[in-house]
Simulated scan of single mutants.
Amino acid sequence: MTERSLETAYRLRTPEDSRKLYAAWARDYDSSFAAAMDYQLPFSVAQTFAELGGKGPVLDVGAGTGLGAFALRQQGVHQIDGTDISTEMLSVADEKNLYERTFIADITAGMPVPDGAYRGVISSGTFTLGHLGPLALPEVLRVIAPGGLGVISVGLAHYRAASFDLAIADLPENIRVTEIEVPIYGPDHQGSNGTDAAILICAYVS
């Protein structure tokens, strides 16, 4: 299930493709993917956010089943909202009582969130092959208030193929970006994707 679903996820083309895949995957996502692959990316994102001084309220973009919120709470960060395109994935997250609130949104169509509504944004595994591309970065970053921080993971292969570096160079002058490369999976991973890496885009908003 893990490798087949991961390969399918990387081939997604439309928001409706994403809704269908994650509707079918939601109930066993934590066991068949996160546990089986030793999925460490949400923890790396949360740890980096906390170490760089990130504080709540935070919006978790591509919240899925709540792995990012769980990791943030381990770092002592609270006041977390979550958004995702999948109703079924958010239903699983809601059962864990990790978020203040959750809401459905297709990032490519815009979020029902005012500019500067949050002090922080995190995103783990949503900017990757078959998912969000660099054109979605401004929509995610616009909800961060001045003085806030965003930590957004981008799969390394996707970062290179989609020219995220060019999109970052075009961001407004009030957004300063640093980048960190991290592994996506831990040593207990299964399958052929275990050595994949991600870039953490750390965006400081002034």
Rank of each mutant, 00 (worst) to 15 (best):
A46P: 08
L132N: 06
L41D: 00
P138F: 00
D81V: 12
G120I: 04
Q40L: 15
Y29A: 09
S31D: 14
L59R: 04
K96L: 09
D60V: 06
V143R: 00
G110C: 12
A50I: 06
R101G: 10
I122Q: 02
Q75N: 12
L52I: 12
M37C: 15
L59C: 04
A117D: 04
Y29W: 11
L132T: 05
D81F: 05
S32K: 15
V151E: 02
F49R: 09
G130E: 07
R101W: 01
F33P: 07
D38G: 04
L67R: 05
I152D: 01
A63H: 06
L141G: 07
G120L: 01
Q75I: 07
H131L: 10
G148Y: 04
M37F: 13
V121N: 02
L72I: 01
M37P: 02
S124H: 06
M111V: 08
T48G: 09
P138A: 06
I85D: 02
H131A: 12
G116I: 01
I122T: 11
G53Y: 05
V121E: 00
R101K: 13
V113A: 10
Q79A: 13
Q40T: 12
Q74R: 13
D106T: 10
L98R: 02
D106K: 07
L90E: 07
I85C: 03
F43D: 13
I122K: 10
G120T: 03
E95A: 15
I152A: 01
D38S: 11
V140E: 10
S124T: 13
P146E: 07
D38L: 04
F43Q: 14
T83R: 01
K55I: 14
L135W: 14
L141A: 07
V45K: 02
V154W: 02
G64F: 03
Q75R: 12
Y118N: 01
A35K: 15
A50G: 05
R73C: 07
A109T: 12
G125E: 00
M37Y: 14
V77L: 13
A69G: 15
L129R: 12
L72Q: 09
G54L: 02
A145D: 14
D28I: 10
G68E: 06
D30A: 14
V61W: 03
L149N: 03
N97T: 15
V58F: 05
F43M: 12
V92W: 07
L135P: 12
R142S: 03
A34R: 02
S153G: 13
E51G: 08
G64K: 08
V92K: 11
V140W: 00
E88N: 11
Y99W: 10
H131P: 04
I122P: 01
P112H: 12
D94C: 15
P134W: 08
F33Q: 10
Q47A: 14
G110T: 07
A145G: 03
G62V: 11
